[in-house]
Each structure stands twice: as structure tokens, then as C-alpha cells.
């Protein structure tokens, strides 16, 4: 069924949320992705997070206000069990495919 596998960008976001654990919110995710070499607009991240949440792969809460944010709470995300499952599934699929690549395929000269 369409939607049961994450898209490339969705996967990225999921991974970032997982790696940030409990500190995953808009700006943090954006910064993390930037470190990983990908700049993304804030709104894009939020839209993706909403979608992930609708699919049930992440869950969210509002918490963690700081002075820097003018006392506003963060929208914090955490990966759910089913999120973990799809991530693992995706990883496995990829690894399998990597393994099945013959060495000759990447020999360019």
C-alpha cells in the first residue's frame, strides 16, 4: 500500500527526529539536517512532521519553553514504535540491495 514506506525526505526527518531524541523540534531538526549537509526550509520540515504524525510514525507534544523563544513552547517530536519499524524496514531494504550489487557495477574507467 502506498504510504506504508517512507519517502526519501520523510526518512531523513524520521532519522533526525530519532537521533535528536526528546529534543527534536523545528529549528533543531533544521540545524541537524544542515550539519548533515542538507538545507531545508522550516515550513517544509513542519509539513513533513505533520504528515509523519498523521501516518503514526512520530508522536508530539508541546513543551520546553525557553527565554530565547520568547517563552513559547516547542513542538517536540519522538519516533513511535511503528516509526522505528518503517525505518528499520527501509534500512534493511537498502542494505539488501547494496549487498546484491556486484563489484563490477561500480568499476568505472
Amino acid at each position: 500500500m502506498k504510504g506504508s514506506n517512507p519517502g526519501e525526505f520523510e526518512e531523513l526527518i524520521l532519522l533526525t527526529v530519532a537521533s535528536l531524541y526528546d529534543e527534536a523540534y523545528g529549528v533543531a531538526i533544521q540545524d541537524e539536517l544542515k550539519l548533515a549537509g542538507r538545507s531545508v526550509a522550516l515550513s517544509t520540515i513542519h509539513v513533513a512532521l505533520f504528515r509523519l504524525e498523521r501516518k503514526g510514525w512520530v508522536e508530539s507534544r508541546f513543551d520546553g519553553a525557553t527565554k530565547q523563544r520568547g517563552g513559547r513552547r516547542k513542538h517536540l517530536y519522538r519516533v513511535t514504535a511503528s516509526g522505528q519499524r518503517v525505518l528499520k524496514q527501509a534500512k534493511k531494504t537498502r542494505e539488501k540491495l547494496w549487498e546484491s550489487i556486484p563489484k563490477a557495477a561500480f568499476r568505472f574507467n
Binding site: 529549528v27 522550516l42 520568547g70 513559547r72 513552547r73 516547542k74
Partner: peptide, 17 residues
């Protein structure tokens, strides 16, 4: 309402930085 609060927080944070 809540979404607004969090995203405004996000951009405020970036603005301050």
C-alpha cells in the same frame, strides 16, 4: 493555536540567533 505558538517560537529563536 498550539501550532502557531511552536512555529512562532521556532522563527523567533532563529531570529534572535
Amino acid at each position: 493555536e498550539e501550532v502557531a505558538e511552536s512555529v512562532v517560537g521556532d522563527i523567533t529563536e532563529k531570529f534572535r540567533k
